[in-house]
């Protein structure tokens, strides 16, 4: 099976889907001739032409809003926000419109749009090129938020997002783009949205996380295995709506739960995961639910030592897992 990088899986999924269905088109800033600032849409302009790979003006709200209008009128747009940090001008379109159109029209109108955005830190991106912004959208019924960790999941989930008849926010970890490689089949396949996946089976401590942090947890688990600590790792993959069944099962499995995100600790996805566990797994728990996250400061600073201080990494995850295992 071919080994591909995380970003190659993005490009491959877009390419295959555009070839499969001519209702699919791409719109965003620099996505055309340049192939995207991260090169996620590289080659698509040459292959599918400027009508289907549209360089838009620098207008995030219109990128979302025009995409929503096109989706209502029968197309399947894939909109790119150049950085997740810059999605904020489009929040009204995403939250007031995309999320609510099926509901408010009593199932008459639908918005099959996918909005892709690179998120996450560790790339010297400072405050405004590093943020995790999923929590803003994670309390909006009508939206789905996908945050894959592996190239295999990227391809399968992006295809599922594009084929979904509901709006999907597809957040790609920008540090994972070239750092993470893995097997990606050439065949057409999808990975179901809304389903978490156990990425490692274990007995002593459960880690639930998503995105790049899944790899940190897997690396930490390898190390801890040498010490005889067995870690169970659940990749949430879809952070909204959450896969409650998988969360409950994974928490009950070991009775010790560590939740990891590189977002701020307060008010994030993992707080909701903790609430689900608290509601359903009270008698299964052997230790308090632990959270490892970024500090509650506005965003990631630029200076390397400060950025490193903010970011989670395999060592921080390993430390938190060991402490919990020893509780």
């Amino acid at each position: 099976m071919p080994v591909r990088s995380y970003i190659e899986a993005v490009t491959l999924a877009l390419h295959e889907e555009m070839q499969r269905d001519d209702k699919i088109f791409i719109l965003g800033e620099d996505v055309g001739v340049r192939g995207g600032v991260f090169r996620a849409t590289t080659g698509l302009y040459e292959k599918f032409g400027e009508a289907r790979v549209i360089d838009t003006p620098l207008t995030e709200s219109a990128i979302a809003g025009v995409g929503i209008g096109a989706a209502m009128y029968g197309m399947r747009p894939v909109a790119e926000m150049q950085f997740a940090d810059f999605i904020l001008p489009a929040v009204n379109q995403i939250v007031s419109e995309a999320a609510k159109i099926r509901y408010r029209s009593n199932n008459d109108w639908t918005v099959p749009i996918t909005i892709r955005a690179p998120y996450g830190g560790g790339v010297h991106g400072a405050l405004y090129h590093s943020q995790s912004i999923e929590a803003i959208f994670a309390s909006q019924p009508g939206l789905k938020i996908v945050m894959p960790s592996t190239p295999y999941d990227v391809k399968g989930l992006l295809k599922a997002a594009i084929r979904s008849d509901d709006p999907v926010l597809f957040f790609e970890h920008k540090r994972a783009y070239r750092l993470i490689k893995g097997e990606v089949p050439d065949e057409d396949y999808t990975v179901p949205i809304g389903k978490a996946e156990v990425k490692r089976e274990g007995e002593d401590v459960t880690v639930m996380t998503y995105g790049l942090a899944v790899h940190f947890a897997l690396q930490a688990a390898e190390k801890l295995a040498e010490e005889g600590i067995s870690a169970h790792i659940l990749d949430l993959r879809t952070v909204y709506p959450l896969d409650k069944e998988a969360i409950i099962e994974a928490a009950a499995k070991t009775g010790k739960v560590l939740l990891v995100t590189e977002d701020n600790k307060e008010g994030g996805i993992i707080g909701e995961v903790a609430a689900i566990i608290a509601e359903h797994c009270f008698f299964d728990l052997d230790a308090p639910i632990q959270r490892l996250a970024g500090p509650d400061i506005p965003a990631m600073p630029y200076a390397p030592p400060l950025e490193k201080f903010f970011m989670i990494n395999p060592e921080k995850v390993e430390h938190a897992m060991r402490e919990l295992a020893e509780f």
């Binding site: 979302a64 209008g69 197309m75």
Partner: peptide, 30 residues
Amino acid sequence: GSKALRILTQSSPVTTQVAHAVGAALAGRL
């Protein structure tokens, strides 16, 4: 709003529908 009558569904925040009209025109062209 009515799909059968070609009326896009509307919300209360103003001018969000303006972007949708542009998007529907783009879709029509495609």
